[in-house]
Nucleic acid binder design. Structure first.
Lengths: 187, 187
DNA sequence: CGCATTTCTTGATTTTCGTCAAGGCTGATA
DNA sequence: TATCAGCCTTGACGAAAATCAAGAAATGCG
């Protein structure tokens, strides 16, 4: 149950054993069925989640009902609805499971305690907050093909595990465009 | 000298007077002439800056030499090179003054102390880290015109104070496109 | 297994934005 | 005041991606 998150934390902070125990004790487990919502629009996100197993999609629904994917997550990754978490305002975005999943939740107040303990954990939180990965795509102005090539290198698992329409949405292009890029590359 | 930053901090955290004094004592003042660099490519950013007066542009230079604007800042705003700050690695980006300016610098270690004191300051740091404002444009997939309309509402001062070519770059479009949008809107 | 639904591909068409180029405007400076 | 440089605007054009539409492939489900 806690093996993976312990490994993940140790890679990031390597806290003393008793601190790690303290943290683990505060975790809560949550099962999320396929298509279930971890965060719904209007809810306030006050936890950070570690995925024990399963897949999640983080997306925004516009006024016109179109969904645009903010991020995609696979097992043993951390996630949160950063905007809501930071502001403690209701979220405009959703996080939805795309398979039966299990997550461990760490509550904001416990995180805050942890940041008192460890500067490196503070930094981890920042990195998570930033959604740094997804920013990478958007800051550099890349062509759709360059974005896909970059994704293949930086996060190849995504292409394995998510439908292409979500991948396309994540990269900010239509499924048709992605399909044509993939065809072109495979030649 | 410290009036504006005190007001800003009080809006965010309202710390006890003695803590505020402690913080103010740790600030260092830095004059930056027009076109001077606060952060150069290759430098590591270990401070957060508060702008007493002046304007700054935060941008990335690609391999081909093109500049893309990450954010624009005016007086009494906070700024930092978040990626470098978080990772404590040399920055790939620059922060340059676009007018004669004066900033107050708060060093990372002092910030860390502050986050021990106040959860709200911790949150502020996160927001700064995220470059949340600039993300807003990129997450929702807006048309160039929608981006500009949104900017006019959320940060009208930018349009007052920065050349349109920087505004355009900030929104991820060419100056020509912005020029045409402005013409269209003004009709 | 067969049906229904979703996802993916492909083609035709349209739209949008970038690029290139030229000219005007403005502000700084000698 | 004349000159120059940088900035902004405008037009013509082309490339790239979105849209629209149809059909194929894959998946889920009774």
């Amino acid at each position: 149950m806690f093996q993976s998150i312990i490994e993940s934390i140790n890679r990031i902070v390597s806290p003393p054993a008793e601190q790690l125990t303290l943290l683990i004790e505060r975790l809560t487990v949550r099962q999320v069925p396929k298509d279930g919502f971890l965060i719904r629009e209007g809810q306030t996100c006050s936890s950070v989640y570690f995925i024990n197993h399963g897949f999640f999609r983080h997306f925004n629904v516009s006024e016109t009902g179109e969904e645009s994917t903010i991020d995609l997550y696979i097992h043993h990754e951390w996630m949160l609805e950063y905007k809501s978490f930071v502001s403690q305002q209701p979220s405009q975005n959703c996080i939805q499971a795309t398979s039966d999943s299990e997550v461990l939740a760490l509550h904001a107040r416990d995180i805050h305690d942890l940041t008192r303990i460890s500067e490196r954990f503070f930094r981890l939180m920042m990195i998570l907050e930033m959604g740094m990965r997804s920013q990478e795509f958007q800051q550099n102005r890349l062509t759709p093909e360059e974005k896909y090539q970059k994704l293949l290198i930086t996060r190849p698992e995504l292409v394995q595990h998510f439908p292409l329409k979500h991948i396309a949405s994540y990269m900010g292009m239509t499924p048709e465009t992605l399909s044509r890029i993939r065809k072109k590359i495979s030649l």
